[in-house]
Nucleic acid binder design. Structure first.
Lengths: 334, 334
DNA sequence: GAGAGAACTGCAAACGTTTGCACAGAGGAA
DNA sequence: TTCCTCTGTGCAAACGTTTGCAGTTCTCTC
């Protein structure tokens, strides 16, 4: 039903090629013809068929965005939405659309492979958790640009990536605590296995060393029980600490609750600062100080890096660390 | 570079049509030929080109999902992510992909129009806030199925929609408070303008009437100042209330904080229950009781309704209300 | 007033599929 | 034997674009 290039050609009395050339501005066409064609396009409500286009010129103007549903806990959510929104906005301004795919709902990366093999997307943005060796090879083989969100463990590959500056965030957190007259911060992480936790630990340790803090310590808080034990040790003095840096917000909430239950004052006796500016942080009592990151910018930059490859044929792998900043609230206001 | 149907045909020694028929199972083909073709497909690593396909058979196997970036506050986030994930999962099982578009980043619904006019998506899911008259007409004209997330104000159109059962949620909240021996619940909403707030009000009023509660009251809490004034009035007895139902979580947090600052005990003196199970609700003190909704199911059902139109050619408008449930925590444990 | 380029336009092939039509051969039924 | 129905396959057109090549007309330049 929809008008095609041929309908316009017929109506104006030119060949389809001429119409195509007017649409794409790909040759010099007399003003008169241009005018008529544009008018006919209006009248017939013409819109180019993107498939026919893709078929001949080989690119689809679609990028794929892999979302990690396995990780759909609420903490990746806030991060996620603004990033997605940013990616889509950037894509739109460049004339691209964004196809999302849920990695975990299919075995074996099949959904992502489908993007490459059948949908022929022009590029892919994917979270580091979804980056399998097989997938990387597939994308490299098919020469399809991709950007990884989150720093990969090994840097031995030609991979473009982007991440928040975890190490810097940890450094800033320690500096902040010291500036508030805390003397002995410890770091609480969920485990020590993910790269971002390693980076945070490293940043923490580095600043502690620099300031000659006696015993920098990193604790694994991967269960409620551990949190309970730890707060008891802090209370009894078995663990020397006057402040904690929590590698994520949920740990912070648990610790805060445990401390209050023990009658330990926050921020007077113990200061708390957490990673990720989870929106409710400011409604806690005391309001939680956090290491914040601009998730919109994160997505925006990821998209920019991708389009650097797609459009500007940039080929030397680049990476970017999005700066973090401290939002000081009551929980570190000794 | 990628292998085409012709390459396979050549390799096996049949015509492209035969290969196509084997792929689509659209005619009877001898077992022998089938076997050879399948083998050749493996060897050449063949994957059908979705564009060429779409070009001839008219459907794209892509659905559009409009996201409302204007509303990217954290409270729609949690809702959003799980819904999106659900929609994508359903789509994937039906062989469809999901194209997202950010409505607000373009003027005049242009981005969404683009989905219809150029991308030729087979269906669209969009939030009710993005549903303009113009868009509805466009989609109807082009006979492209769509599902609205959120109940539209007017029902005079042939529109498929889905929503959480706001009225029922409010009813359950009142019933819950009464069962906990609160006698006089009031409702706090941000405004009275959105349809979901109206529904919640209606459900609240209805149950109050049924239980002959003296003065059912709905307050607009659209600023911190109003929250402050209201809590003072509650404290002084100027407003008679022993419990509040908050139309969203942020109001709940503000009220809780204001009450505590006034030294009013929750849940002993005032009970609080809020809509939306925001993940941190359980970490507040006291842990917040909420009206919960299964956002995954919401997305899942939206997708199912859409595919009902796309694949089963269902044509009589349907709608669905996703049931809510009470999660009782400390804040209503008088 | 001839030759050269520039400006403008058309023809037809190509992109990778699907599908209506046709046809050959096989296997019965009459 | 003749006719009919199936099964299996190929031919060629079609989907809506883009684009290399070639052709025509026009405008200079000498």
């Amino acid at each position: 039903m929809a008008a095609t290039i041929k309908d316009i050609a017929k109506k104006v009395g030119v060949s389809p090629s001429t119409v195509s050339r007017v649409i794409n501005g790909t040759a010099s066409i007399s003003e008169e013809t241009k005018r008529k064609i544009h008018q006919a396009m209006k009248e017939l409500d013409y819109h180019p068929n993107s498939f026919a286009r893709s078929l001949v010129n080989g690119n689809t103007f679609i990028i794929g965005l892999v979302i990690d549903a396995g990780n759909s806990d609420s903490f990746s959510n806030a991060f996620f939405v603004r990033s997605v929104s940013a990616i889509e906005t950037v894509a739109q301004t460049k004339g691209y659309n964004v196809l999302i795919t849920n990695d975990s709902s299919s075995e074996n990366n099949n959904a992502v492979k489908n993007l490459v093999l059948e949908r022929k997307v022009d590029g892919i943005i994917l979270p580091v958790q979804c980056m399998t060796q097989e997938l990387v090879e597939l994308m490299l083989n098919h020469q399809i640009p991709f950007v990884v969100m989150g720093e990969p463990e090994q840097h031995n590959q030609k991979i473009f990536w982007i991440d928040m500056d975890n190490a810097e965030g940890a450094r800033l957190a320690v500096e902040h605590l010291l500036s508030q007259n805390y003397k002995c911060p410890i770091l609480l992480a969920e485990s020590q296995e993910t790269i971002f936790e390693k980076k945070r630990s490293a940043g923490y340790i580095e600043v502690c060393r620099r300031h000659q803090i006696a015993h920098p310590m990193v604790f694994a808080c991967d269960s409620d029980e551990k949190v309970r034990v730890l707060t008891e040790q802090i209370a009894s003095g078995a663990v020397q600490a006057d402040s904690v840096i929590c590698a994520n917000n949920i740990i912070a909430f648990k610790v805060l609750r445990a401390l209050k239950n023990k009658g330990i004052n926050v921020p007077e006796s113990i200061g708390i600062i957490a990673f990720d500016n989870y929106p409710l942080a400011e409604y806690l009592e005391p309001a939680l100080s956090v290491v914040d990151i601009d998730t919109y910018k994160l997505g925006e930059q990821a998209a920019n890096i991708l389009f650097g490859q797609i459009r500007d044929k940039q080929v030397t792998p680049s990476s970017a660390l999005i700066p973090t900043q401290i939002i000081a609230r009551e929980s570190t206001g000794k």
